[in-house]
C-alpha cells in the first residue's frame, strides 16, 4: 500500500470521525444531508458484499466494517435519535436522491468488468459513490451558516478522492496491468464535483471568513 492510498483512507476515516463527533458529541446533524448519508450506506453495502468471502487483509476488513457500521449508524442517528433528528434540516435537503440510484444501476448493468452479480454491484457502488455527494453540496449551498465541522467533513471527503487519484497514478506506474477505467472515470467525475466547494473552502480559510457557498 502506497502513501497516497493510506493518506486517502485516513482522510476518509477522518471525515467519518468528524461527522460522528458532530452527531454524537454535539448531538447535531445541522447542515448534513440525510440523502447523501443514505446513498453512502447503500454504496458500502453494495461494494462490500464480499466482505466475508474474500479476505484481503486485516486492515481491509476492519476498514470495511468501520465504514459499514458508521454509515448505517449515521443514518440511524439522523432518522431515529430523538435529539439529533430534530436538528436535521429536512426542508432544505430536497434533492431527489432516489433518481440517482436507478441510472447508476442501469449503467452498472451495461458497463462492468464482468457480468456477474458481484461485479455489477461493485460497478454500481462506484457510480453511486461518484454522485452521492450531490445532495450534500446542494444542501450546503442552501445553508446560511455552515459550521466548521460540516465544512471539515466535506473537505476531508474531497481530499480522500484527490488522494485516491494520486494513488491510482502511483499504482499505474508501479504495478503491471493496472488499468481500471470504471473507477478512474467515476473517481475523476467524483473529484471534479468537489472543485467548486474546494475553491470556496480554501478562500474562506485564507481570508479567515465564514464558509458560504454562493447559491
Amino acid at each position: 500500500m502506497n502513501a497516497f492510498r493510506l493518506a486517502g483512507d485516513m482522510t476518509h476515516l477522518l471525515s467519518v470521525v468528524v461527522l460522528l463527533l458532530k452527531i454524537h458529541t454535539i448531538k447535531s446533524c445541522a447542515g448534513i444531508s440525510l440523502k447523501t448519508q443514505e446513498l453512502y450506506a447503500l454504496v458500502f453495502a453494495a461494494r462490500y458484499l464480499d466482505l466475508f468471502i474474500h479476505f484481503i487483509s486485516l486492515y481491509n476488513t476492519v476498514m470495511k466494517l468501520v465504514f459499514l457500521a458508521s454509515s448505517f449508524s449515521i443514518v440511524w442517528y439522523m432518522r431515529r435519535h430523538k435529539i439529533v433528528r430534530r436538528t436535521y434540516d429536512k426542508d432544505h435537503d430536497t434533492f431527489r436522491h432516489h433518481f440517482l440510484v436507478l441510472p447508476c444501476l442501469a449503467l452498472a448493468l451495461l458497463i462492468n468488468e464482468r457480468f456477474t452479480f458481484r461485479e455489477v454491484m461493485w460497478a454500481f457502488s462506484i457510480y453511486l459513490e461518484a454522485v452521492a455527494i450531490l445532495p450534500q453540496l446542494v444542501l450546503l449551498q442552501r445553508t446560511r451558516n455552515i459550521d466548521n465541522l460540516t465544512g471539515q467533513y466535506v473537505f476531508f471527503l474531497g481530499a480522500y478522492r484527490v488522494l485516491y487519484i494520486l494513488n491510482w497514478i502511483y499504482r499505474y506506474f508501479t504495478e503491471p496491468h493496472f488499468v481500471h477505467w470504471i473507477s478512474w472515470v467515476a473517481g475523476i467525475v467524483q473529484t471534479l464535483l468537489y472543485a467548486d466547494f474546494f475553491y470556496y473552502y480554501i478562500m474562506s480559510w485564507k481570508n479567515n471568513v465564514k464558509l458560504e457557498l454562493p447559491a
Partner: peptide, 10 residues
C-alpha cells in the same frame, strides 16, 4: 480477471 488486485481498495 483484470479487476482482482484492484478490489483491495475501499
Amino acid at each position: 480477471s483484470s479487476g482482482t488486485n484492484f478490489k483491495d481498495e475501499l
